[in-house]
Protein backbone atom coordinates (compact mmCIF):
# COMPACT_ATOMS: atom_id res chain seq x y z
CA UNK A 1 0.00 0.00 0.00
CA UNK A 2 2.77 2.43 1.02
CA UNK A 3 4.68 1.60 -2.15
CA UNK A 4 1.58 2.23 -4.26
CA UNK A 5 1.07 5.64 -2.58
CA UNK A 6 4.66 6.62 -3.43
CA UNK A 7 4.35 5.29 -7.00
CA UNK A 8 1.11 7.11 -7.74
CA UNK A 9 2.35 10.36 -6.16
CA UNK A 10 5.46 10.41 -8.35
CA UNK A 11 3.35 9.68 -11.42
CA UNK A 12 0.74 12.34 -10.59
CA UNK A 13 3.39 14.95 -9.81
CA UNK A 14 5.11 14.31 -13.14
CA UNK A 15 1.81 14.51 -15.00
CA UNK A 16 1.02 17.86 -13.40
CA UNK A 17 4.56 19.26 -13.60
CA UNK A 18 5.49 18.11 -17.08
CA UNK A 19 3.07 16.18 -19.25
CA UNK A 20 -0.08 18.25 -18.74
CA UNK A 21 1.70 21.58 -19.15
CA UNK A 22 0.37 23.58 -22.17
CA UNK A 23 3.72 23.61 -24.06
CA UNK A 24 3.88 19.82 -23.92
CA UNK A 25 0.26 19.35 -24.90
CA UNK A 26 0.84 21.60 -27.91
CA UNK A 27 4.04 19.65 -28.69
CA UNK A 28 1.96 16.47 -28.71
CA UNK A 29 -0.52 18.04 -31.13
CA UNK A 30 1.73 20.08 -33.39
CA UNK A 31 4.41 17.49 -33.97
CA UNK A 32 2.23 14.81 -35.65
CA UNK A 33 0.44 17.49 -37.72
CA UNK A 34 3.78 18.87 -38.89
CA UNK A 35 4.97 15.41 -39.94
CA UNK A 36 1.75 14.69 -41.84
CA UNK A 37 1.73 18.06 -43.61
CA UNK A 38 5.40 17.72 -44.49
CA UNK A 39 4.75 14.55 -46.45
CA UNK A 40 1.69 15.97 -48.18
CA UNK A 41 3.35 19.20 -49.22
CA UNK A 42 6.67 17.78 -50.35
CA UNK A 43 5.36 14.81 -52.26
CA UNK A 44 4.98 15.32 -56.07
CA UNK A 45 2.35 12.58 -56.17
CA UNK A 46 -0.78 12.09 -54.17
CA UNK A 47 0.07 10.56 -50.80
CA UNK A 48 -2.24 8.06 -49.20
CA UNK A 49 -2.80 9.11 -45.56
CA UNK A 50 -3.23 5.51 -44.51
CA UNK A 51 0.24 4.67 -45.84
CA UNK A 52 1.76 7.48 -43.81
CA UNK A 53 -0.12 6.72 -40.62
CA UNK A 54 2.11 3.93 -39.16
CA UNK A 55 5.27 6.03 -39.63
CA UNK A 56 3.76 9.22 -38.22
CA UNK A 57 2.33 7.35 -35.22
CA UNK A 58 5.67 5.67 -34.50
CA UNK A 59 7.55 8.96 -34.80
CA UNK A 60 5.07 10.80 -32.58
CA UNK A 61 5.66 8.24 -29.85
CA UNK A 62 9.44 8.15 -30.30
CA UNK A 63 10.00 11.91 -30.29
CA UNK A 64 7.47 12.61 -27.53
CA UNK A 65 8.66 10.01 -25.04
CA UNK A 66 12.43 10.15 -25.48
CA UNK A 67 12.53 13.96 -25.33
CA UNK A 68 10.33 14.28 -22.32
CA UNK A 69 11.88 11.61 -20.17
CA UNK A 70 15.52 12.31 -20.98
CA UNK A 71 15.06 16.02 -20.35
CA UNK A 72 12.92 15.81 -17.20
CA UNK A 73 15.15 13.29 -15.44
CA UNK A 74 18.33 15.17 -16.39
CA UNK A 75 16.70 18.41 -15.22
CA UNK A 76 15.70 16.86 -11.89
CA UNK A 77 19.16 15.43 -11.47
CA UNK A 78 20.70 18.84 -12.11
CA UNK A 79 18.39 20.57 -9.62
CA UNK A 80 19.02 17.74 -7.13
CA UNK A 81 15.30 17.06 -6.68
CA UNK A 82 15.86 13.56 -8.09
CA UNK A 83 17.98 12.95 -4.98
CA UNK A 84 14.80 13.30 -2.93
CA UNK A 85 13.36 10.33 -4.84
CA UNK A 86 16.52 8.25 -4.45
CA UNK A 87 16.34 8.82 -0.68
CA UNK A 88 12.74 7.58 -0.48
CA UNK A 89 12.21 4.04 0.80
CA UNK A 90 11.12 2.62 -2.55
CA UNK A 91 13.13 0.33 -4.80
CA UNK A 92 14.95 1.76 -7.81
CA UNK A 93 12.88 -0.45 -10.10
CA UNK A 94 9.63 0.95 -8.78
CA UNK A 95 10.97 4.50 -8.74
CA UNK A 96 12.02 4.26 -12.38
CA UNK A 97 8.72 2.67 -13.35
CA UNK A 98 6.90 5.57 -11.66
CA UNK A 99 9.10 8.10 -13.48
CA UNK A 100 8.59 6.39 -16.83
CA UNK A 101 4.84 5.71 -16.56
CA UNK A 102 3.95 9.34 -17.27
CA UNK A 103 6.10 9.37 -20.40
CA UNK A 104 4.58 6.06 -21.56
CA UNK A 105 1.07 7.51 -21.21
CA UNK A 106 2.20 10.69 -22.97
CA UNK A 107 3.54 8.55 -25.84
CA UNK A 108 0.32 6.54 -26.12
CA UNK A 109 -1.79 9.72 -26.26
CA UNK A 110 0.60 11.26 -28.82
CA UNK A 111 0.25 8.20 -31.03
CA UNK A 112 -3.49 8.69 -31.39
CA UNK A 113 -3.30 12.38 -32.36
CA UNK A 114 -2.43 11.53 -35.99
CA UNK A 115 -5.15 8.85 -35.95
CA UNK A 116 -7.72 11.51 -35.05
CA UNK A 117 -6.50 13.77 -37.88
CA UNK A 118 -6.40 10.85 -40.31
CA UNK A 119 -10.00 9.96 -39.46
CA UNK A 120 -11.10 13.26 -41.05
CA UNK A 121 -9.08 12.63 -44.21
CA UNK A 122 -9.44 8.94 -44.97
CA UNK A 123 -11.42 5.81 -44.28
CA UNK A 124 -10.00 3.94 -41.28
CA UNK A 125 -12.13 0.82 -41.57
CA UNK A 126 -10.55 -2.61 -41.45
CA UNK A 127 -7.84 -1.59 -38.98
CA UNK A 128 -6.91 -4.06 -36.23
CA UNK A 129 -7.27 -1.70 -33.27
CA UNK A 130 -6.27 -4.25 -30.67
CA UNK A 131 -3.01 -4.87 -32.47
CA UNK A 132 -2.51 -1.10 -32.76
CA UNK A 133 -3.06 -0.65 -29.05
CA UNK A 134 -0.57 -3.40 -28.20
CA UNK A 135 1.99 -2.03 -30.60
CA UNK A 136 1.56 1.60 -29.51
CA UNK A 137 1.94 0.56 -25.88
CA UNK A 138 5.10 -1.44 -26.54
CA UNK A 139 6.63 1.23 -28.77
CA UNK A 140 5.86 3.81 -26.04
CA UNK A 141 7.47 1.59 -23.39
CA UNK A 142 10.56 0.90 -25.50
CA UNK A 143 10.96 4.54 -26.52
CA UNK A 144 10.49 5.72 -22.93
CA UNK A 145 13.11 3.28 -21.72
CA UNK A 146 15.39 4.53 -24.49
CA UNK A 147 14.82 8.01 -23.00
CA UNK A 148 15.70 6.58 -19.58
CA UNK A 149 18.83 4.97 -21.02
CA UNK A 150 19.79 8.41 -22.41
CA UNK A 151 18.95 10.20 -19.13
CA UNK A 152 21.22 7.95 -17.09
CA UNK A 153 24.05 8.28 -19.61
CA UNK A 154 24.32 12.10 -19.57
CA UNK A 155 24.57 14.82 -16.96
CA UNK A 156 23.38 17.97 -18.76
CA UNK A 157 20.01 18.77 -20.34
CA UNK A 158 21.62 19.78 -23.67
CA UNK A 159 23.53 16.48 -23.72
CA UNK A 160 20.23 14.65 -23.30
CA UNK A 161 18.82 16.43 -26.37
CA UNK A 162 21.92 15.77 -28.46
CA UNK A 163 22.17 12.15 -27.41
CA UNK A 164 18.44 11.62 -28.08
CA UNK A 165 18.88 12.88 -31.63
CA UNK A 166 21.85 10.59 -32.11
CA UNK A 167 19.40 7.69 -31.77
CA UNK A 168 16.24 9.22 -33.18
CA UNK A 169 17.26 10.66 -36.51
CA UNK A 170 18.86 7.46 -37.84
CA UNK A 171 15.64 5.68 -36.83
CA UNK A 172 13.69 7.99 -39.15
CA UNK A 173 15.40 6.44 -42.14
CA UNK A 174 16.38 2.99 -40.95
CA UNK A 175 13.21 1.65 -39.32
CA UNK A 176 11.03 1.34 -42.40
CA UNK A 177 8.80 4.23 -41.35
CA UNK A 178 8.73 5.92 -44.72
CA UNK A 179 11.38 4.04 -46.68
CA UNK A 180 10.56 0.32 -46.94
CA UNK A 181 13.22 -1.94 -45.45
CA UNK A 182 13.50 -3.73 -48.78
CA UNK A 183 14.62 -0.46 -50.42
CA UNK A 184 17.49 0.06 -47.99
CA UNK A 185 21.03 -0.92 -49.02
CA UNK A 186 21.71 -4.47 -47.87
CA UNK A 187 24.55 -3.42 -45.54
CA UNK A 188 22.13 -1.17 -43.59
CA UNK A 189 19.45 -3.78 -43.09
CA UNK A 190 21.14 -5.49 -40.09
CA UNK A 191 21.24 -2.06 -38.40
CA UNK A 192 17.50 -1.69 -39.04
CA UNK A 193 16.81 -5.00 -37.34
CA UNK A 194 18.88 -3.88 -34.35
CA UNK A 195 16.55 -0.91 -33.77
CA UNK A 196 13.35 -1.42 -31.73
CA UNK A 197 11.24 0.98 -33.78
CA UNK A 198 11.56 -1.28 -36.84
CA UNK A 199 9.44 -3.90 -35.07
CA UNK A 200 6.91 -1.41 -33.70
CA UNK A 201 6.42 0.29 -37.08
CA UNK A 202 6.06 -3.10 -38.77
CA UNK A 203 3.26 -4.15 -36.41
CA UNK A 204 1.50 -0.83 -37.09
CA UNK A 205 1.87 -1.42 -40.85
CA UNK A 206 0.30 -4.85 -40.52
CA UNK A 207 -2.49 -3.54 -38.29
CA UNK A 208 -3.34 -0.60 -40.58
CA UNK A 209 -2.46 -1.70 -44.12
CA UNK A 210 -1.67 -5.44 -43.78
CA UNK A 211 1.74 -4.83 -45.41
CA UNK A 212 4.19 -5.59 -42.59
CA UNK A 213 7.03 -7.98 -43.38
CA UNK A 214 8.04 -9.30 -39.93
CA UNK A 215 5.98 -11.91 -38.08
CA UNK A 216 3.77 -10.27 -35.45
CA UNK A 217 4.76 -12.56 -32.52
CA UNK A 218 8.43 -12.02 -33.36
CA UNK A 219 7.95 -8.23 -33.40
CA UNK A 220 6.17 -8.26 -30.02
CA UNK A 221 8.88 -10.48 -28.52
CA UNK A 222 11.61 -8.22 -29.96
CA UNK A 223 9.96 -5.11 -28.46
CA UNK A 224 9.61 -6.83 -25.09
CA UNK A 225 13.27 -7.86 -25.17
CA UNK A 226 14.38 -4.32 -26.05
CA UNK A 227 12.25 -2.95 -23.19
CA UNK A 228 13.66 -5.36 -20.63
CA UNK A 229 17.23 -4.75 -21.79
CA UNK A 230 16.96 -0.94 -21.81
CA UNK A 231 15.27 -0.87 -18.40
CA UNK A 232 17.72 -3.30 -16.79
CA UNK A 233 20.72 -1.47 -18.24
CA UNK A 234 19.34 1.88 -17.03
CA UNK A 235 18.85 0.55 -13.50
CA UNK A 236 22.37 -0.86 -13.59
CA UNK A 237 23.64 2.58 -14.65
CA UNK A 238 21.66 4.36 -11.91
CA UNK A 239 23.25 2.09 -9.33
CA UNK A 240 26.69 2.51 -10.83
CA UNK A 241 26.69 6.22 -11.63
CA UNK A 242 24.26 7.92 -9.27
CA UNK A 243 24.90 5.97 -6.09
CA UNK A 244 28.62 6.61 -5.96
Amino acid sequence: MKTWIAFSSILMKDMRSYYLKPPNISWGLIFPIAWTLMFFLRSPVAVEVRDLLPGVMALSILFGTTSMLAVTITFERKSRSFERLLLAPISFNLLMLAKTSGAIMFGVVNAFVPVIFASFLTDLSGINWLMILGSVLLVAITSTFLGLFIAVSVSQVFEAQTFSNFFRFPMLFLCGLFIPLADLPSFLRPVSYALPLTYGADILKTAINQNGIISIPLSFIALLCFSVFLFAYSIYNVNRKWIL
Binding site: M1, T3, I5, A6, S9, I10, L85, A88, P89
Partner: peptide
Protein backbone atom coordinates in the same frame (compact mmCIF):
# COMPACT_ATOMS: atom_id res chain seq x y z
CA UNK B 1 2.52 16.58 0.89
CA UNK B 2 4.57 14.99 -1.91
CA UNK B 3 7.41 14.16 0.48
CA UNK B 4 4.91 12.56 2.87
CA UNK B 5 3.56 10.42 0.02
CA UNK B 6 7.10 9.26 -0.85
CA UNK B 7 7.17 7.67 2.60
CA UNK B 8 3.80 6.03 1.99
CA UNK B 9 1.72 8.49 4.04
CA UNK B 10 -1.94 8.64 3.05
Amino acid sequence: VFCGALYGMK
